[in-house]
Amino acid sequence: MLEIQNMSVAYANQVTALKNINVSIGKKKITGIIGPNGAGKSTLLKGILGLIPASGTIMFDQKPLKIIQKRIAYVEQKSQIDSTFPITVEECVALGTYPSLGLLRRVGKKEKALVKAALKQVEMSEYSQRQIGALSGGQFQRILIARTLVQDADLIFLDEPFVGIDLNSERIIMNILTKLRNAGKMILIVHHDLGKVANYFDDLIILNQEIVAYGAVSETFTEENIKEAYGNSLFYFGDQEGKEHA
């Protein structure tokens, strides 16, 4: 259980980004974080991870999150990652082995085998020697997912993994995330497209600087909650199955 208590985040110019967040996120769940632009979705992830200063307490199984940091995988929005960087697909996935390597050990046979298996799982084996800039958006996202597979983390934080990707990549990624969830992992995903909320997530955090609603998708993904979070900017709301785009 990931327990977030009284978490607030303010930007350098004193503008509040998140106010008094209290939420307990369960294991074995894919939890979506949705909300309008500027709601603080990515900020919530970064605040939990300690990438930005945040007040409040964050505990995992009643221990400070810092103790199990090596068990955390984080994938930033892929647009934030420099795709011109001189690194191949294989090397990029191998970065996932770094937390377990310690200070001076190098990537060895065992790690290379893990990379190979992960690339196979995301159906990217034949691209292993390509530079990451030579991949499509969907392929690159699959590589980043392969990296979290190699890391074998217990907590997986993904920021907008479904933006700008093809249907095949989406299918492969969702299959993997479902398997990881079933294996007991906690997966937290920042997401902006309301259309597929019901297909992707078990639980939902609806956010607009504060928690608007948190719980099972069937209970929280309601027109009332969405209107409260998005206000009048939302002109259309689909059915509860999430088959219509908002």
Binding site: Q69, C92, Y98
Partner: peptide
């Protein structure tokens, strides 16, 4: 040479590195 891995990761994806405690 000794810290090649760390320099590579902190140059390429510092957020990932920071998230797992590097």
């Amino acid at each position: 040479w000794l810290f090649y891995r760390q320099f590579l990761l902190t140059s390429f994806d510092p957020s990932m590195a920071k998230a797992f405690g590097m």
